[in-house]
């Protein structure tokens, strides 16, 4: 299952799907960094993620850090239960801005 992306509501939205593990996290990382390099505000949609490991989480951490440095918006939306349990394990649920979906994020942006 390949990863997707779309542009909506002023955000580039990277859609991660299936297993984001060591075999596929390099692809996720490249996609995230590509949009940040284009200076897009970025949301990562995790609603279809069945499994994420520390390498997948590391791609999100890197994206968060680059966005912050570049003054771009970054966040996670539609975090699946599987992904959320791993983020909680790493205490990253307290670090990343997390919204149920794009609309919730836009509403929060004000």
């Amino acid at each position: 299952m390949g990863f997707g992306h779309r542009t909506e509501g002023g955000y580039a939205v990277v859609e991660l799907r299936g297993d984001v593990d060591l075999a596929r996290s390099p692809e996720a990382r490249a996609l995230i960094l590509q949009f940040l390099e284009q200076r897009s505000d970025l949301l990562v949609d995790l609603s279809e993620v069945a499994y994420i490991d520390s390498s997948g989480v590391a791609s999100l951490v890197e994206g968060y850090q680059v966005a912050k440095k570049e003054g771009l918006k970054f966040g996670l939306i539609g975090v699946s239960e599987a992904a959320l349990s791993v983020l909680r394990l790493a205490r990253l649920d307290q670090v990343f801005p997390i919204h149920s979906d794009l609309d919730a994020r836009i509403a929060d942006d004000g």
């Binding site: 490991d53 520390s54 590391a58 791609s59 791993v86 790493a90």
Partner: peptide
């Protein structure tokens, strides 16, 4: 930081 989470898990 991006790495070093595995052992923590």
């Amino acid at each position: 930081r991006p790495g070093g989470l595995g052992t923590r898990f």
